[in-house]
Amino acid sequence: MGLNFKFIEGSASYNTAEVFFARIDPTIASTDELLKSIYYLLWFPGYFGFNWNALEDCLTDFNWLSESKIVIAHDNIPKIDERDLQIYLEILNSSVLDWKQNDQHDLEVVFQKKDEKLIQKLLSL
C-alpha cells in the first residue's frame, strides 16, 4: 500500500471557507491526548469511543460535517509510542484511500517533508 499523504515544507494553510481544517497540536505526547485532540478538532460525535476503532469509524464517516474537503495537518509527528504511531498512520492512510473511492468527502492528511522517510518506514513494518 502506498502513502496517501501530502508532504510539504513549512506550515500548511488552507482557505477555511472552502475546507474543514484541523491542525494537530505539535506538542501531543500521548495517545490519549491525540485521540482527545482529534475528537475536538474534527467535531466527532459524542459517541466517539476514544480508541483506534472509533477513530477509524469516524474518519470514514464525517456525516456531521457539511464541508466536502477535510484537511488534517501535522507540523510534527505526534510523540506517542511507536506501535500506536504506526496504528495511527495506518488508520489515516487507509481513511484517505477510502474517501478516494467516495465523492461525498475528500480527506487530505498533511505531514512535513522531513517526516516522510520515518512515516514510510513505520508503514512498511
Rank of each mutant, 00 (worst) to 15 (best):
A22F: 13
K69I: 14
E18R: 13
I80K: 12
F50D: 06
D98Y: 14
V110M: 08
K114H: 09
A17V: 07
S66E: 13
V109E: 00
W52D: 11
D98C: 03
I24G: 00
L85I: 03
L55V: 06
Q104H: 09
I24R: 00
N63P: 01
D75S: 15
G49D: 07
I87W: 04
N4G: 12
R83N: 14
S37M: 04
Y88W: 14
L3V: 14
L122C: 09
N63I: 09
I77K: 05
F5E: 07
D84V: 09
E9P: 03
L89A: 12
E9G: 10
D57C: 03
N63V: 09
E18F: 08
I80D: 11
F111C: 07
L85C: 12
D57M: 05
D106G: 04
P26W: 02
L107E: 01
Y40I: 11
D106A: 11
I72L: 10
H74I: 01
S30I: 08
V109D: 00
Y40A: 08
I28V: 14
S68A: 12
I87H: 08
A22Y: 13
H74R: 02
L59A: 06
L125T: 07
E82M: 11
Y88D: 07
F111T: 05
E56I: 01
L42F: 07
K117G: 06
N102V: 05
A12T: 12
V71I: 15
V71Q: 04
Y14C: 06
E108Q: 15
N93W: 08
D75N: 14
I72A: 01
S124H: 13
Q120I: 10
W64T: 11
I70Y: 08
A12P: 02
A22W: 02
L41N: 02
Q86S: 13
P26R: 13
L42I: 05
W64C: 11
I80T: 12
N53R: 09
S37D: 15
D25S: 12
F21W: 10
N76Q: 14
E82H: 10
N76T: 09
N76P: 01
Y14E: 13
V19H: 11
T60G: 03
N15E: 12
S94I: 03
Q101I: 02
F48K: 03
A29D: 13
F44Q: 00
L107K: 02
F62N: 06
F44S: 00
D61N: 14
T27F: 05
N63M: 05
I119Y: 03
L41Y: 03
Q120D: 12
S30K: 13
M1C: 07
L118P: 02
T31V: 14
E90I: 06
L65Y: 10
L107A: 01
L92C: 15
S30L: 09
A54T: 08
Q112F: 10
K114D: 12
A22E: 07
A29T: 14
